[in-house]
Design a binder for these strands. Structure first.
Ligand SMILES: [Zn+2]
Ligand SMILES: [Zn+2]
Ligand SMILES: [Zn+2]
Ligand SMILES: [Zn+2]
Lengths: 145, 145
DNA sequence: GACGTAATGTTATACAATAACATTATTGCG
DNA sequence: CGCAATAATGTTATTGTATAACATTACGTC
């Protein structure tokens, strides 16, 4: 699968440490976003014992652009951008659509939308260093049901 | 002051209970967003003892549209929409620009980019029930300094 | 006054994140 | 290699955020 090859690449590019690789692995294998503590629970067998070990790995992974933090959930997801993590996106603005029924998270970036936000900021003299956009609701599958 | 009169009106319209009025009062009097626990600290003299008393009041105030929750801060602010709380805004989409130096929060609503978001959602079949937009950065005053 | 509903008070607990400190790899260089 | 700088790890304790569960009290309505 091409997407997996790409992910393996970016992972290698960043030379993930053991803990980072473990945490990233759990997130990659999960459909839904996960809290740091539930990640920890899945890594007890691998020797992780303390929340801090997970939080430290997450911090790096977020820096690398491999993982996103969802502020409205206090949870984390592996990057699932259509064009792959870091394809010019990792340092751009991303938006998330979070289904409250099935926990699916769709990730997207709309340049026009971002441009409009930037326009408002500029007019106000506000200098944004990060932008959080999270839609909560029902995904297509859960909407009809 | 007209703004205060307006706020008093909306407060009266909702017939705030004692605890709700106390919590709202603290938020109105604060420049920066406040956590539930720091609100509680300011209300010990008034008889409040437990976090739940504050959280319950906050839940109602958010429902009324008098208060907003900032997801990226785990904190709350009194509504400061230009046209006043509930001026057609309370059930619309609002965005926040949060200064990380002085803690000032600017609240704004841009119908155009809300429309654009809605367009994306519709195309994806996603039915949003709430939208979170938070810009983190430096406000005009802190930007130059 | 009896009933349903909403608000309140209280205690205990769950969940999320960081502080502080000791230890161990890794890397780059003289 | 020997050594210093840097980054990653491990561990314990603590702080901060939010809710569960249950008992009680006020309030509107018939
Ligand atoms: Zn991404
Ligand atoms: Zn869904
Ligand atoms: Zn508002
Ligand atoms: Zn500022």
């Amino acid at each position: 699968m091409i997407a997996n090859a790409m992910k393996a690449d970016t992972r290698a590019n960043h030379d993930l440490t053991r803990n980072q690789a473990l945490v990233f692995g759990v997130l990659e294998g999960s459909e839904a976003p996960l809290s740091a503590y539930s990640i920890l629970d899945q890594l007890r067998e691998d020797g992780l014992r303390a929340p801090l070990q997970v939080y430290r790995a997450l911090e790096k992974l977020v820096d690398f652009g491999l993982v996103h933090r969802l502020e409205s959930l206090n949870a984390f997801v592996a990057c699932n951008h259509p064009s792959g993590p870091e394809a010019g996106e990792s340092h751009g603005t991303v938006a998330f659509a979070i289904c409250e029924k099935c926990d699916n998270v769709a990730e997207f970036a709309d340049p026009d939308f971002v441009e409009r936000l930037r326009g408002w900021a500029k007019a106000e003299g506000f200098e944004p260093h990060s932008t959080i956009i999270e839609l909560r609701g029902l995904c297509e599958g859960c909407c009809v049901a």
